[in-house]
């Protein structure tokens, strides 16, 4: 019962945070909305016994990533939130209709749900301690863990390719 109540409260917080992030005019409000959604998700993870993931969520996402977001927002400036002008009415109607249909489809699918027999197919031990997570991460998922290295290399190389060799070094400018 306590679990259901906690879930209900934080599910509402997460949804409210996500909606705030989308509709807020001021980017700082959006960032705060995202922050509260992330905190609410961390609580969900604890409810699911995923303690390490919950801590990671708070420390890395709510802590480091959000700080980075806020830095970027401050660098760009929060004074002119309407720099791109209002969106055409027709466009926003279409947006809401499509989003509504999508949401309704997911709710419909979910309510007709037949949910997995996780007793037969889930893992028996769901306690997300550091030890268990490490066993999964460096046992079952080692290759995935290593593949993300490739992803990060791509990101770094891509950044260099787009931003480096400017000015005198830039062949395009010289040409």
């Amino acid at each position: 019962m306590a679990e259901a109540v906690t879930f209900g409260i934080f599910a509402i917080v997460a949804l409210a945070g996500a909606v705030t992030m989308l509709v807020a005019k001021n980017p700082v409000y959006s960032a705060v909305g995202l922050l509260s959604a992330m905190f609410a998700l961390a609580v969900m993870y604890i409810l699911l016994d995923a303690h390490l993931v919950a801590m990671v969520q708070v420390i890395i996402y709510a802590g480091a990533v959000m700080t980075l977001f806020l830095f970027v927002i401050m660098l760009i400036g929060v004074d002119n939130p309407n720099a791109y002008g209002p969106r055409p009415v027709s466009q926003s109607i279409v947006t809401w209709v499509v989003a509504g249909v999508f949401f309704a489809a997911i709710v419909l699918a979910g309510s007709g749900a037949w949910v997995t027999g996780s007793a037969a197919f889930g893992t028996a031990d769901l306690n997300g301690t550091i030890e268990n997570v490490a066993d999964e991460m460096f046992g079952t998922w080692t290759i995935v863990f290593l593949s993300t290295v490739m992803l990060l290399t791509i990101a770094a190389v891509g950044t260099i390719a787009l931003a480096y060799f400017t000015g005198a070094d830039d062949d395009e400018a010289a040409a």
Binding site: I154, V157, G158, A161, Y164, D170, D171
Partner: peptide, 12 residues
């Protein structure tokens, strides 16, 4: 044509 950014192109 992209000159000195060639290695990055190839790596990508």
């Amino acid at each position: 044509k992209v000159g000195k950014r060639g290695p990055e192109f190839v790596v990508l």
